[in-house]
């Protein structure tokens, strides 16, 4: 899957959340989407997911519009997008069926086992902690296997083993030729995983480069947003 974003802009009333954003991603790219609070990261993810309409500009996935590529786009929101009153297994069954990718009990059990939730398959999702819900979301997107996977701050709710699990899943996902875009404030982790870093600042794309080592241009571009450490 190839992603092409041209002159993308989004305004909320008189406030421009994103302006003139151009981006071209090849299959298998892992993008670390970085920037300070209010830079427009979440707005950009919502636009890519088709959850909000752009004020201007276009987004194309393999030449198709976002609406035409529904089902090929996944959004892993750490503790969201699950029905609290459905069990863990029912949530998986419902969402996979909704995407037209119904799986058998064995596949569902294997997906839950892979994220360490097999013992809680019969519990309501509402009883799970935020980290457990994030694991369930990982299991969901592992089964749905979207061509473009978007992640919004996934690290905040996960414990150590959960982070390992997520990163392994994302590596495998990119290896299949799928695109992953992860918005995060955990810069070192995101940069370690990514093949490209994109920095947004005040709604504009201020940095967009494939990963290098060393990476002085990234250090300069991102240095302004790092904490100073003073009291």
């Amino acid at each position: 899957m190839r992603l092409t974003v041209k002159q993308l802009a989004k305004a909320y009333g008189y406030l421009w959340a994103l302006r003139q954003l151009d981006l071209e991603l090849a299959p298998g790219e892992f993008v670390a989407l970085l920037g300070p609070n209010g830079a427009g990261k979440t707005t950009f993810l919502k636009l890519l997911a088709g959850l909000t309409a752009p004020s201007s500009g276009t987004i194309e996935l393999d030449g198709a519009s976002v609406a035409g590529a529904r089902g090929q786009i996944g959004l892993l929101a750490p503790a969201d997008h699950l029905y609290d009153q459905l069990t863990v297994r029912e949530n998986l069954r419902f969402f996979t069926a909704l995407h037209g990718k119904a799986h058998g009990d064995n596949e569902l059990a294997a997906a839950l086992d892979a994220v360490g939730l097999s013992a809680r398959a019969g519990e309501y999702a509402g009883n799970l902690s935020a980290g457990m819900k994030c694991r369930l979301s990982i299991a969901k997107w592992r089964l749905l296997d979207p061509g473009l996977l978007l992640l919004d701050e996934p690290y905040g709710v996960l414990d150590g083993s959960g982070v390992d699990l997520l990163e392994e899943f994302l590596r495998q996902h990119c290896a299949k030729g799928h695109i992953v875009i992860m918005a995060s404030h955990h810069v070192s982790r995101a940069v370690n995983l990514c093949s490209r870093a994109v920095v947004l600042h005040q709604g504009r794309l201020s940095f967009n480069e494939p990963k290098q080592s060393p990476w002085p241009s990234f250090d300069r571009a991102f240095g302004d947003f790092l904490p100073r450490g003073g009291l």
Partner: peptide, 17 residues
């Protein structure tokens, strides 16, 4: 209400439903 909780409406709209 069920769709408002946990932004489940977004999850539905993401699907090819």
């Amino acid at each position: 209400q069920a769709e408002r909780d946990n932004h489940c409406l977004d999850a539905l709209l993401l699907s090819p439903l």
